[in-house]
Design a protein around this nucleic acid. Sequence first.
DNA 1: CTGAAAGCGCTAACAG
DNA 2: CTGTTAGCGCTTTCAG
Lengths: 327, 327
Amino acid sequence: MITIKDIAERAGVSYATVSRALNGRSDVSEVTRQRIFELAREMGYQPNAIARSLVRKKSDIIAVIVPDVSNPFFADITMAVNAAADEAGFTTMICNTGWDPVKEQEKLRIMVEQRVEGIILKPTAFIRPGALEALNLPVVLFWHAMPDDLSYIEVDHEAGARLAVNHLIERGYRRIAYVGGIETSPSNQIRLMAYQKTLQEHSLAVDTRLISYGPFRQESGYARIAELLKTAKPPDAVFCGNDIIAMGVLQYAREHDLAVPADLGIIGFDDIGCASLPLVGLSTVSQPRDKLGCAALQALMREIDSFPSRGRQRILIEPELKVRSTT
Amino acid sequence: MITIKDIAERAGVSYATVSRALNGRSDVSEVTRQRIFELAREMGYQPNAIARSLVRKKSDIIAVIVPDVSNPFFADITMAVNAAADEAGFTTMICNTGWDPVKEQEKLRIMVEQRVEGIILKPTAFIRPGALEALNLPVVLFWHAMPDDLSYIEVDHEAGARLAVNHLIERGYRRIAYVGGIETSPSNQIRLMAYQKTLQEHSLAVDTRLISYGPFRQESGYARIAELLKTAKPPDAVFCGNDIIAMGVLQYAREHDLAVPADLGIIGFDDIGCASLPLVGLSTVSQPRDKLGCAALQALMREIDSFPSRGRQRILIEPELKVRSTT
DNA sequence: CTGAAAGCGCTAACAG
DNA sequence: CTGTTAGCGCTTTCAG
């Protein structure tokens, strides 16, 4: 691999001059600059970013750590961050934790060792308080439920839930069920609150028999809508914890000849890829991944600029209603 | 940021000794090793991978460059590679080219500058011959149609097409259409050949009116099945260029009350995420992403070990038939 | 077992 | 404008 010294030798100048020329410094005569560039090209010179990082003490690399990049939701966010980072002249290292806290810790360590300039992290679970601050690195989280004093960014779950419930009410539904996600999920909590509040604002009764929790899985949605429809006063619409659950509900409706949206309105949350397939056509509240990703990068850039002084940023992204065929 | 020199000072030894101890060399007395480890921990020492890479002349980083990580297909492969790389002690840099050859070139350059030890690349288009060899780096491609003498890995499209067509014939379909992808796609070509050959092997006529090309898009599948069904002798089954196209065909069938699979058998290619959704239930030929990813990493490891001598590896992965509700 | 010393490839003062 | 010099943080001989 050829170095600036090789070029210097051939050009008959010191290697400092080569460095200056290649870095576009103004204090190099036009002739030598020309010669050096030409030489560099014809010798096939490739700058060594590692050496540069070492002396400059900056790598121009950021890390994005998510539980599962093959999950379309995270994949979209990751890509948005990546694209924004490109713009800003940063290279991205993407890490996958596989929802494993141990691996997460390991990945964080590796990224610190690689001297990345900042980390965008979607934690797999509750992280030991202080662990992230101890990294001594700019960090932005995709999750607000952290005890630490860190910046975070998230979709506005409250606004999203209101959007969904208001929409159902406008459409004329009156007995709206909440087929939620797991009870402990913070976002699930927020949406449930907003659901109840919105119903009350419209003078609609909140019937706890219409509220259920469960895993974010299709089977869960399928099973729970089955239960709900057996009751004396079944719902005429459901607001689901996410699109996966909604897909289970929709599946049930189709299999049991329930007219959607006439007999049953269905609305999900997230707007995963297949929700917009004509074959599915699920109405949903979209979490705009591109905006989430861009905003995360911007927040991180701000953190990097002001580091080590930490300004905790709390950013909420507006969700978007997607009306399709199920409402 | 604390360095080995700081530790050395506190420990009262030379920093060479600290380096040795921390790297688990045997030629350090047990007592000093102990002291150094303890000190490192309590001082919060984090090795600097950049400095290490510089002197060792290896980064333990590989690059994966794909056109679109948010495409579930590439996302899955990327993740499989990433997981395998983890096992092998490599960190992965993931790059997205957005199907832009210029950006691809740029990303390749950056990866070379980062001194990654190898690159797994899904090219966006035909790359200028020699451009990849000029990188002077181990490279494995997810595409065989390259003029270069490089290693590649791909699913066995021929075997996949045979699998699909044989399956349809076994199910009793006799007029099988090929609703393919774009004509210039190499994989499309191979599948078309295999489709024709398989029909002939079963003494079934190859009717060119049953063969069509088009973009890998739903609307394309939708439009083309519409055409085909209007003809005098319509097909009773379709083998599609990929799942997206198949989804368009399925969509048309559902909208026009065509019984699937009774009146029309449908089989796709790829096995994208939503194909397995109960609401879709598309039969398809799966490209096993995990196998593709693992095999790619293994191939790259072999290339790295034997570098700079290049042994061109040609690896074909066996596809798998997934029978669901459309056949 | 340990220290001294020589770099890895590059940038950044500091003098000319 | 250009050369000299001093590192960045770490690994690795080479002598003790």
